[in-house]
């Protein structure tokens, strides 16, 4: 006699997950993560002193996983609005491949793991900064600012700007003015970058009820604000040179990159009111990504060259 008689459950409530590993990787927002990892890496390498390569790899890995965890928590909370936006409706939760609870647990476990690993094996200042970044992005930005104010990405931009400071803290155990200048570059870069996207995706944000600047203040005001922020970020991008943190070579590259940024922002400012193609806004969005990558690459190259030069002269 069989002890257990198996019968089939057809109830939809007991549906097994069809989420693949790729779906969970998508929850980590790999493209956002790559920018965070790069800026964190630049902060770590530009910091004075020599970091053990294994400690450096651990720090970068923790920053990457922590950033990914905050992305998963963001997708968990924003599943309702992601479902109505063309840009996000194919994400794992709105498409039904991943259940909200799975994403929440995934995000929480990775948050705890990345912060604890960074704290225990690198230092607790870096660990605390990573914890603050995750909290700021998932709670302050996602749960509060995003649906409440058109200044959402201005204030929320702080979360994306902290990684170079975490990298610096991981290398030195401290936060310096130099790392805060790197923070300022990313922080001031965020509004023109996201508002360019918000201009040509304003219909999406309107449907989702998100108070992005073009939907609240109008396109003309957003274009003026983009231009103003771009002027400031172009100037702050050059700042490491007069402050003595980088060479005139870096200053020249940063100035040229900044001029390019201002030129693209000017084209957006001059965009006619009825322009539905929004090609200048799309071009600005693309250039802003190139700008951030290039200016941090220039800063990294400048730091490495300065270190090689000082080692050669010693």
């Amino acid at each position: 006699m069989a002890l257990v008689d198996e019968t089939q459950l057809e109830d939809g409530r007991y549906r097994l997950s069809e989420a693949t590993a790729g779906d969970f990787i998508q929850l980590l927002k790999p493209r956002v993560m790559s920018l965070v990892v790069f800026t964190g890496f630049v902060g770590l390498i530009a910091a004075p002193g020599v970091v053990n390569p294994f400690v450096a790899v651990t720090a970068i890995l923790c920053i990457a996983v922590g950033a990914g965890a905050s992305g998963a928590l963001n997708m968990w909370y924003d599943a309702d609005i992601d479902a109505v936006m063309t840009r996000t409706k194919t994400r794992p939760i709105p498409s039904g491949r991943v259940q909200p609870g799975e994403a929440l647990v995934f995000g929480l476990v990775l948050s705890a793991l990345s912060v604890m690993t960074l704290g225990v094996f690198v230092n607790w200042l870096a660990g605390a900064l990573l914890a603050f970044t995750i909290f700021f992005y998932a709670v302050v930005y996602t749960m509060w600012l995003k649906r409440w104010t058109p200044q959402n990405i201005v204030i929320g931009g702080a979360a994306g700007a902290i990684p170079p400071v975490i990298g610096w803290a991981a290398a030195t155990g401290a936060v310096s003015l130099e790392s805060l200048v790197l923070f300022a570059i990313v922080f001031l870069w965020t509004p023109p970058h996201f508002w360019a996207l918000a201009l040509f995706k304003s219909g999406d944000y309107e449907r989702a009820g998100i108070p992005m600047m073009p939907n609240v203040a109008g396109e003309a005001s957003t274009r003026r604000q983009i231009f103003a922020y771009t002027l400031v970020v172009a100037a702050v991008g050059v700042l490491p040179w007069p402050l003595g943190y980088a060479s005139p070579g870096y200053g020249l590259i940063a100035a040229l990159l900044g001029l390019g940024f201002v030129w693209y922002a000017w084209k957006v400012l001059a965009m006619p009111d009825g322009d539905r193609d929004m090609k200048p806004a799309k071009a600005l969005f693309g250039y802003s990504l190139l700008y951030l990558f290039a200016i941090f690459a220039a800063y990294l190259a400048d730091s490495v060259l300065a270190r090689i030069a000082s080692a050669g002269g010693a």
């Binding site: 019968t7 089939q8 007991y14 069809e18 693949t20 590993a21």
Partner: peptide, 26 residues
């Protein structure tokens, strides 16, 4: 001794494949 009746869910091929993918990743 009485037989215990367990109700189970039989995974589809897609579910089995997804589970394998998750197991390998973990």
């Amino acid at each position: 001794m009485t037989a215990v009746e367990l109700k189970t869910v039989k995974p589809t091929e897609a579910q089995k494949k997804a589970q394998r993918s998750r197991s390998i990743a973990i």
